[in-house]
Each structure stands twice: as structure tokens, then as C-alpha cells.
């Protein structure tokens, strides 16, 4: 087991392995998304309260979920990189940040599009989840700004890892304080917790979408980590040998 991790953490091995894994993540992921989108848009029944507008959850929930997951990847990558000085782990953090920001942006925009017919406004501060997502987006911006401000890669890795770890503690505090705050101001949430109230016909497409998005996220992340590894290892021998080999290594 330990050997497997050691091998995975070696940049040349990961670079090659990721290339074979990406299609195995992307193809099932895209199939699940195709099913989920079709079923969610056309087969699932109308919601008795929200009408057809609720169908936005089929993209909103996966995006919101991945926005958190990407942050977890960033913080875990940072922690592993700091503690075990694993170079690949820092590359994971660097690759996860822009993806996480993209999904946070999507969660915000789709949430706001949903809010328009439901609340009559594009933005409702009383909704704790939208507010938390907005703060999360700012955390991503801070992380990326710190990374780009430090020229030395090794230093940028460690500094941003510290920031990501501080941020992960903060995300928990943000969650609870925003919940408390919106309860003071009679905040309204669109998305009720838990699925028992949901019909199976509504729920299955949602689960398919969440799993599909996660797989596609894995593929997108793997591709970004490959790029990151290639850039970081550009002066090493294995990159040189790989590029000079007849097969190449794009």
C-alpha cells in the first residue's frame, strides 16, 4: 500500500498514470451527466411548489458540492505537502484552486438565477448558502493571488498551503456564523436539507449529476495536475527523455 502511494507521488509515474486514468473518469462521468441532464430536464416531474424552476438544482448542487471538495483537495494537498514535503501534493493544490473558483462561481450564478424567479431578486443576502459561497470565492481569490505574487515556486507552495489550512478552519466558522446570522434575519433557503421529501424520479437524476460531475472534476483536476507537474519538472531528466522519445508525452 505504502509503495503504491510512493509510486503515485513520483512525478513521472503520476504523469503517465494520469494520462491513462483521465478517459476512465471522463467517459463514465459524461455519460452520467448526459443521463442526469436528460432525466432532470425532461423526465423528472414538476415540483408542486417551485414548478420547473427547481430543475436548476441539477447543476447548482453538484457545482456547490464541488466548490467545497476542491477546497478540501487544496487544503489536504497543502497539508501533505507541508508535512511530508511531497512535491506532487503541492501541485494538486495549485491545480485545484482555479477549478474550485470556477465551480464556486457556477454555484453562485446558478443560485442567483434560481433566486430570480423564486425571490424576485438576483441576489438575496438572507440566504446563508449563497453568502457562504461568496466568501468561499473570495478565499479562492486570496489563495490564487498569494500564489501568483510569489515568484519562487517552492515558497509559493508552502505559503499558500498555510493559507489554505487557515482557510479550511475558517470555512467551518463561516458556515456556522452565516447560518446563525441568517436565522436572525429570517433568512430563507431554497434548498431544504435532506432528500426524503424528494421523489425518486427527481432524486436519481440528481445523484447521477453529482457523481458524474465528481468524475468529470477528477478528470479536469488530473489534467491540470499533469500540466502543473510538467511545468515544475521541465528541467528534469525524465521530461527530457520523454520528450525526445519517439512516442512523446503530451
Amino acid at each position: 500500500m505504502w509503495n503504491f502511494f510512493k509510486q503515485l507521488a513520483s512525478p513521472p509515474h503520476f504523469y503517465r498514470l494520469a494520462a491513462t486514468i483521465i478517459p476512465w473518469l471522463a467517459v463514465p462521468g459524461l455519460l452520467l451527466i448526459a443521463y442526469g441532464a436528460y432525466a432532470g430536464l425532461f423526465l423528472a416531474p414538476e415540483d408542486y411548489q417551485q414548478g420547473d424552476a427547481y430543475r436548476i438544482i441539477y447543476v447548482h448542487v453538484p457545482a456547490a458540492y464541488l466548490s467545497m471538495m476542491a477546497y478540501m483537495f487544496m487544503a489536504l494537498g497543502g497539508a501533505i505537502g507541508l508535512v511530508w514535503r511531497m512535491k506532487l501534493a503541492h501541485a494538486v493544490g495549485a491545480a485545484a484552486a482555479p477549478l474550485g473558483a470556477a465551480f464556486t462561481f457556477l454555484a453562485l450564478v446558478t443560485g442567483s438565477i434560481w433566486g430570480r424567479p423564486m425571490w424576485g431578486t438576483w441576489w438575496e443576502w438572507g440566504d446563508p448558502r449563497l453568502t457562504s459561497e461568496l466568501i468561499l470565492l473570495f478565499l479562492y481569490f486570496g489563495y490564487m493571488a498569494l500564489r501568483s505574487a510569489i515568484d519562487d515556486t517552492a515558497k509559493a507552495d508552502k505559503a499558500s498551503a498555510v493559507l489554505a489550512l487557515v482557510g479550511v478552519v475558517n470555512v467551518v466558522v463561516v458556515h456556522f456564523s452565516v447560518e446563525w446570522w441568517s436565522s436572525l434575519h429570517q433568512g430563507q433557503t431554497l434548498f431544504k436539507k435532506g432528500g426524503p421529501g424528494m421523489d425518486a424520479e427527481m432524486l436519481y437524476p440528481l445523484i447521477a449529476m453529482i457523481v458524474g460531475f465528481t468524475l468529470v472534476f477528477g478528470a479536469l483536476l488530473a489534467r491540470r495536475i499533469r500540466t502543473e507537474v510538467l511545468h515544475r519538472e521541465r528541467r528534469t531528466r525524465w521530461v527530457r527523455e520523454m520528450i525526445l522519445s519517439p512516442a512523446g508525452g503530451r
Binding site: A145, A149, S177
Partner: peptide, 20 residues
């Protein structure tokens, strides 16, 4: 400018708790 960008999102819960 970078410092503000890093600290403000972290400080938001403090502001929220304090002011409310």
C-alpha cells in the same frame, strides 16, 4: 493590497459575529 485580499475573507465571520 494582497494582505487585504487574504485577510478580509478570513475576517468576515468576526465582523459578522461582532456587528450582529
Amino acid at each position: 493590497a494582497l494582505l487585504s485580499l487574504l485577510i478580509l475573507p478570513l475576517a468576515m465571520p468576526v465582523l459578522l459575529l461582532g456587528a450582529n
